[in-house]
Computed example of a mutant assay.
Amino acid sequence: MAEPKKKSMLISHGIAAQNRKARFNYTILSTLEAGIVLRGAEVKSLRMGRATLTEAFAGERDGEMFLFNMYIPEYQGGVLSRFDTKGPRKLLLKRKEINTLIGAVARAGSTVVPLDVHFNPRGVAKVTLGIAEGRKQHDKRAAVAKRDWDRDKARLLRNR
Rank of each mutant, 00 (worst) to 15 (best):
A2F: 04
P4Y: 03
K5V: 11
K5F: 05
K6T: 08
K6L: 11
K7R: 15
K7L: 11
K7M: 09
S8I: 00
S8D: 05
M9D: 15
L10S: 14
I11W: 08
I11M: 07
I11T: 05
G14I: 07
G14S: 01
I15V: 15
Q18R: 15
N19Q: 11
K21G: 05
K21N: 05
A22H: 06
R23K: 12
R23D: 10
F24D: 07
N25L: 11
T27R: 15
S30I: 03
T31N: 09
L32C: 14
A34F: 00
G35R: 03
V37T: 11
V37G: 08
V37M: 10
L38D: 00
L38S: 02
G40M: 00
G40E: 11
A41W: 01
A41R: 04
V43C: 14
S45V: 02
R47C: 08
G49V: 01
R50S: 10
R50V: 01
A51W: 04
L53M: 04
A56D: 04
F57H: 15
F57S: 14
F57V: 05
A58W: 07
A58V: 09
A58Q: 06
G59H: 01
R61W: 07
D62Y: 12
G63E: 13
G63S: 10
G63K: 15
E64Q: 11
E64D: 09
E64Y: 08
M65W: 01
M65H: 03
F66D: 08
N69T: 06
M70Y: 00
E74M: 09
Y75P: 01
G77E: 13
G77L: 02
G77W: 03
G78H: 01
V79F: 11
V79M: 05
V79A: 13
V79N: 15
V79G: 11
R82N: 10
F83C: 06
D84A: 10
T85M: 12
K86I: 11
P88S: 13
R89P: 08
K90N: 05
K90S: 03
L92D: 04
K94M: 04
I98V: 11
N99E: 03
T100W: 06
T100N: 09
L101R: 07
I102H: 00
G103Q: 13
A104I: 01
A104W: 07
V105C: 02
A106W: 03
A106Y: 05
A106Q: 12
R107V: 03
A108S: 14
G109H: 01
T111L: 04
T111N: 09
V112A: 08
V112K: 02
V112R: 02
V112E: 01
L115I: 00
V117K: 07
H118L: 05
F119G: 02
R122W: 01
R122S: 12
A125Y: 07
L129A: 08
G130A: 01
I131G: 06
A132Q: 10
G134P: 10
K136Y: 10
H138W: 02
D139S: 13
R141W: 09
R141F: 14
R141V: 14
A143L: 15
A143F: 15
V144M: 08
V144L: 13
R147C: 15
D150I: 14
R151P: 05
K153T: 08
K153A: 12
A154D: 11
R155P: 06
R160E: 14
R160M: 11
